[in-house]
């Protein structure tokens, strides 16, 4: 792990005055967010607060009602393979292809379209990184929940995206597996320096993974300055738990 590394001055992704939702049920209201290269931003919030909507807008899967998305200095409106989504759903690998074929599929249609000679090496490397080198020929339905999420990480990091969008990726596995996957993700991010927008409702997960932690509520973001604390340290967890805004956000919502 790299520990405290330099965070570039120019944002890689910028959400400007984003509003989304329906006329009588606004989900996001004039939300602003900047993500800088190689930083991990965790967004916390109870379910229904618009975290997933925020991710879909950041990936251009959903057009905001108002506001704009700027990625690497350009306005974007369509999804691309530089901003890859990792879902909570363990069904996200395409079931009609083996794990290896899933990664090849991503490389072939994504970043290595014109370099078929490098696919094999890249596939081997990304499987190695997540410890699934022996599962290359297995179909997704033959993988356990934790393995499926490792496979999804291998496919995403294999493409070396500029930004990862993660929607509670470890939300549907048991606690020991979740902890394993969290540490795997820390290693992967440290090695690849991938900027990450990580949505979760698990405060401890956010404290473990995030360089910056934001809480999304109806008023927009509340920032928890995690850099003044030590991420992962129990006192930091306690301190954040006691944060009045977060408490209000967690317990007082209708």
């Amino acid at each position: 792990m790299t520990g405290q590394h330099e965070i570039p001055k120019k944002p890689i992704l910028e959400l400007k005055n984003i509003s989304a939702g329906y006329a009588d049920y606004p989900v996001l209201h004039q939300v602003n967010l900047q993500i800088f290269g190689s930083e991990v931003v965790c967004v916390l919030g109870p379910s229904g607060c618009g975290k997933s909507t925020l991710l879909k807008i950041a990936g251009s899967f959903l057009a905001p009602k108002a506001g704009s998305v700027v990625f690497q200095g350009k306005m974007v409106t369509n999804p691309d393979h530089h901003r890859l989504m990792v879902f909570q759903n363990q069904n996200q690998l395409l079931p009609w292809m083996t794990l290896e074929q899933n990664i090849r599929f991503a490389l072939k249609h994504g970043p290595l379209k014109s370099h078929p000679s490098s696919w094999r090496e890249r596939i081997a490397k990304s499987l190695q990184e997540v410890g699934l080198q022996n599962a290359a020929k297995l179909y997704p339905h033959q993988l356990s929940g934790g393995m499926a999420q490792r496979g999804a990480l291998a496919r995403a990091f294999g493409c070396q995206p500029a930004l990862l969008l993660m929607d509670e990726p470890f939300g549907s596995v048991d606690a020991p597996t979740r902890s394993e996957l969290q540490h795997l993700l820390l290693d992967l991010i440290a090695n690849h320096h991938t900027a990450t927008l990580f949505v979760t409702h698990d405060l401890e997960e956010a404290l473990l993974l995030g360089h910056r932690i934001l809480v999304l509520n109806s008023r927009g973001f509340i920032t928890l300055d995690s850099r003044s604390t030590k991420p992962g340290h129990p006192s930091a967890v306690r301190q954040a738990m006691e944060h009045p805004d977060l408490r209000a956000n967690r317990y007082d919502r209708p």
């Binding site: 990936g59 899967f61 369509n78 999804p79 691309d80 393979h81 901003r83 890859l84 989504m85 879902f87 996200q92 395409l94 599929f105 991503a106 249609h109 994504g110």
Partner: peptide
């Protein structure tokens, strides 16, 4: 969304 992500 996976398909869209790989620009299909």
């Amino acid at each position: 969304m996976t398909g869209q992500n790989y620009e299909l």
